[in-house]
Each structure stands twice: as C-alpha cells, then as structure tokens.
C-alpha cells in the first residue's frame, strides 16, 4: 500500500513493503526489527495523544493494550469520530500501555474471541498453574509456547511478578523482540538461550518458545518436557488437544467476550462494525443492545494468520 497506518507489529497487521508507514515509535521499532530494509520506504512516528492532519482528516493513536506500541486509530472529520480498535484487550499488561476508551460515532472492533465461551481467567492464576506444575514435575523442563511478539514478553513479566527468580530460557526466535522490549525499559530478569543448553541443564527449568516448536524437532532437546501453551484458545479443550499441550495456560492479548461487550458499551458508538474473528455473535449481541452493527469482512486476513500461526485457524495475533 502506498500509505499505511499500522496499529501494531503483528504480522497480520504490519506487512512489509509499504510506501509510507504511520505508527507509534514502538511499532516502528518492531517492524524495523522484523523486516529491516523491507519495512517501508518512509516512516512517520506518532506518539499516543499526538495528532496529525492527513488530507483534512485528523489522525490520532490511542493505546490498545494489546502489545507494546499497539494503538487504536482515532479518525476525525468534520466533527465525526471513527475509532478502529485494531487488536486490543482491557486487562492490565505490565508490558504495554493500557487500553483507552475513546467515545466515538463509529467503532470498528476486532472479535477474535467473539463467543461467550471465551472468558479469560485471571492471568496470575494461570501462571500459578505453571509454577505448580514445576513443583509436581521438578525433573522435567517446562516448555511454554508463546507468540514471539507480546505474549512471550508478557509471560516473562508475569512469571517475574509471581516471584519466580531463576533464569528463564528462551528459544532463539524470541530473543530479538525480547531485547527490543528491554530497550524500551522492561526488565525480565536473567534470560538464557535455550539453544545450546544441555538437556540436564534444562531439567526443571522454564523454556519459552514459539508455539510451532512445541511439537517439532526442536523440542526433543528437552527430553520429555511438560508442554504448556499460552493462548486464549486454550479455554476450549478440543483446541488444547489439537495443540498437543499438556498444560494449557489461558492467557490472551485479545479482549474476551466480556471485554468486547463492555468496550462496545463504553465507547457509546451508535454504529459498530465487527471484524477479525467471530463476527456473528458479537453483531447479534450489539444488535440486541440497540446498536446498528454489522460484520465487516477483511480481505486476505486468513492467509496472513496462517503464516503467523502455521495453521488455518487458531492464530491469535
């Protein structure tokens, strides 16, 4: 695209090869780290709260609480305000700025977890499950599958919040972005590379890796690890089995059903468009609340998610 406003650095939202990119400084740094030269021809940073005029439209970015640098796009034209949520969540995340409610006339919301069966539990309790499993299986490595951008760093921060202070081992694919987060002032304590560590060294340790390495050849170096997977999809047992995860951790960077419905109520928009997930149920709900709601199909999304996650469904980026 000649001009792109990028809400955050996940691959299904930030693609390489754009002309001019407008995003938060954090998102620009993430795109640079991921795509290098191919990221854009020119870029412009816009901090949360600042505004910019583009062809008569006033553009601003508000925190979305999804991952570091994630933003909602706030567009104003002749007194009419449109907010594009991008991916978001409402609960606190030590690794990024919290979601800001921006009242608007049209709200375009994501709906990754747009079914009322998705209610993410308290993340502290999920981390406690991981630590309890370490006590049950002190001789087994605990391999935690987590997306490389956002989820992995949030898990690190939560483990530290829970008082766990031993070194945590990282798969090579998580190193660069974790260093980037540290560059923005986050402290994850002692981190060691998992690649190259001896099997005996990893016994009883926490190892973070991208989800795809849970079942691939790479995980064999860990002996017989307890495989944990941190994702909102882990709420549903069939998805856990599909993943082959032994220890599901229901931790998501997306809004769950209650957060979605609460946000729709709080932005007070008379019109809501729903995209990026289970649109039907959320449209049904909003309609019942007297809101003009419709599903908005975005082109090409499925494909991108496949890339991100290695399977047709189940991406959470």
């Amino acid at each position: 695209m000649p001009r792109a406003l990028v809400t955050h650095g996940h691959a299904d939202h930030a693609r390489p090869g754009n002309g001019a990119v407008l995003a938060t400084p954090e998102t620009l740094a993430i795109m640079q780290a991921r795509y290098g030269e191919a990221a854009w021809r020119e870029q412009q940073a816009l901090a949360y709260g600042d505004r910019l005029e583009v062809g008569g439209v006033s553009v601003g970015l508000a925190p979305a609480g999804h991952v570091l640098g994630s933003a909602q796009a706030v567009l104003e034209w002749r007194g009419c305000r449109v907010v594009v949520s991008g991916d978001y969540k409402r609960r606190p995340d030590p690794t990024c700025a919290g979601f800001e409610v921006v009242p608007c006339d049209l709200f375009i919301t994501e709906a990754t977890f747009g079914l009322p069966v998705f209610r993410h539990p308290d993340d502290g309790a999920e981390i406690a499950k991981l630590l309890a499993s370490l006590a049950t299986y002190p001789e087994r490595a605990h391999l935690v599958g987590a997306y490389s951008l956002g989820k992995a760093q949030r898990i690190l921060a939560l483990i530290r919040q829970a008082g766990y202070d031993k070194p945590i081992y990282l798969h090579g694919a998580l190193q660069a972005l974790t260093r980037l987060y540290e560059g923005f002032g986050l402290d994850f304590g002692a981190l060691l590379p998992a690649t190259g560590a001896a099997k005996a060294e990893l016994a009883g340790e926490i190892v973070l890796a991208p989800p795809s390495s849970l079942t691939d050849r790479w995980s064999r170096r860990l002996g017989e690890p307890v495989t944990a997977m941190a994702s909102g999809w882990m709420r549903v047992r069939a998805r856990v089995r599909q993943r082959g995860a032994e220890l599901p951790l229901v931790i998501s960077d997306h809004a769950d059903w209650d957060e979605l419905t609460r946000t729709i109520a709080e932005v007070e928009a008379p019109e809501v468009w729903v995209t990026h997930g289970n649109e039907d149920a959320l449209v049904h709900h909003a309609t019942q609340q007297g809101i003009a709601a419709r599903a908005l199909a975005l082109v090409g999304r499925g494909e991108e998610e496949q890339e991100q996650d290695g399977r047709a469904s189940g991406a959470e980026a």
Binding site: L115, V236, R237, N278, A281, H284, H285, Q288
Partner: peptide
C-alpha cells in the same frame, strides 16, 4: 441467549 448458546455449543 439461545442463539449465542447454539453458536457456542457448535464451536465447543
């Protein structure tokens, strides 16, 4: 809501 339940049951 029965419709939401039906969609959910279908999914789970």
């Amino acid at each position: 809501d029965p419709q939401l339940f039906a969609w959910s049951y279908d999914y789970v």
